Amino acid sequence: MLVIDDLSASFRRYNGLFRQDFITRLSNITLTIQAGEIVALVGHSGAGKSLLAHAILGLLPANAIATGTVSFEGQLLNQHNLVEHRGRNIALLPQQTSYLDPTANVGALVRWAALRGGKPLEIKNRLNRVGLSDDVAQLFPHQLSGGMARRVLMAQATSGGAKLLIADEPTAGLDPANRDIVLKHLRAHADNGGAALLITHDLIPVLSYADRIAMLKDGQLCCVAPTSSFSGTGEMLASPYAKSLWRALPQNDFYAYA
């Protein structure tokens, strides 16, 4: 469904009056996501996870220079067709709940998302699917708890019928119950023929939902492996970095792999 081929992203900045420097933040990223699949993109803060999501969607700032290609269902994504794909075929589930329009209630937010995708409104059903009651439709973003706001974002992202969901830290700050609601919804989306790129720094919870784990370190992919490889002592992991992170988790006795 999604093919990322040799994608790099650099940023231009001025050093003095006339000299320009280029800072590379993503280097030679190659990754595929198939229909029916969740790929979890794991990495430390600042590794470039959100930047990759924005690069896929063509949302980089004006001083960014991107090379390589991104294709969706065999069609090369570019500045001319990205607007058509965003929301209709590819939807972003953003990290910040501030993406919710503070001037509109939840019902309106979900309604707009469905209309953009040409889908039936079904506002109450869409809220119920993410564990929210009907009366939440009347609330405004400032009246929502953090968990409720993230589930509203999920309802928005899925209302337009997008095939590919790019979920940027969708479970950050959530308790286990709300976290699992979001992850189960992503899993159901993939099982119904969609796909998801799940961006997270929290490896353990996503192992029960993702098909593959892609690890990003300082803007470079260092590991792409099935979730089954993250078990035992990590003996099935070819990447020393991935093995080191796995062994250093509390569940693995904080062992530092050398």
Rank of each mutant, 00 (worst) to 15 (best):
L139M: 13
G43H: 08
A66Q: 15
G58T: 11
G161Y: 03
L127E: 03
G173E: 00
R247V: 04
S145Q: 02
E122Y: 02
E84L: 10
I38Q: 05
E122N: 14
M1Q: 09
G194A: 08
A256R: 13
G131L: 06
I204V: 14
F11W: 05
L115Y: 09
I33H: 07
A104M: 15
T227N: 01
G173F: 02
Q143R: 15
A225E: 15
G36Q: 08
A55F: 04
L115S: 12
I204P: 02
A55S: 14
L144T: 10
M215H: 09
E122R: 10
A91H: 06
S10H: 10
I204E: 13
S45R: 11
G160N: 02
L2R: 07
R116P: 00
D180L: 08
Y99N: 06
H185N: 11
A157D: 00
T24G: 04
A62M: 05
L197W: 02
C222N: 07
D101N: 15
I4T: 07
A91Y: 04
D5K: 15
A137F: 04
T32D: 12
R129A: 15
I123C: 05
P226L: 01
F230P: 15
R187H: 12
G147R: 12
A225H: 08
A162F: 10
F22Q: 12
E73K: 12
L26F: 08
V3Q: 14
D218Q: 15
L2F: 06
A177M: 07
L207K: 09
K49S: 04
S228Q: 14
A40V: 14
A214K: 12
R151D: 03
L109K: 03
R150C: 00
G193Q: 06
F18E: 00
G193K: 11
Q251S: 13
A190E: 03
Q75E: 15
E122K: 12
L76I: 04
I56C: 08
S145Y: 05
G146M: 09
A104P: 00
D180N: 14
D191M: 12
L197S: 07
R111I: 02
V224C: 15
S228P: 04
S45P: 09
L144I: 08
V39Q: 10
H80V: 08
K243P: 00
N81D: 07
A177F: 11
S71Q: 14
N128R: 13
H54M: 13
S27T: 15
F140W: 09
V136W: 03
V3G: 01
N63H: 14
D134V: 11
T200D: 03
A162N: 05
H80G: 02
N252Q: 14
L17F: 13
L59T: 02
G147M: 07
A242R: 03
A62Q: 14
N15F: 11
G219V: 05
P141R: 11
A177H: 13
S228L: 02
S228T: 15
T103F: 07
L31F: 06
H80M: 03
Y209C: 07
M154R: 00
G107P: 03
A91P: 08
R13A: 07
T97K: 07
L245K: 11
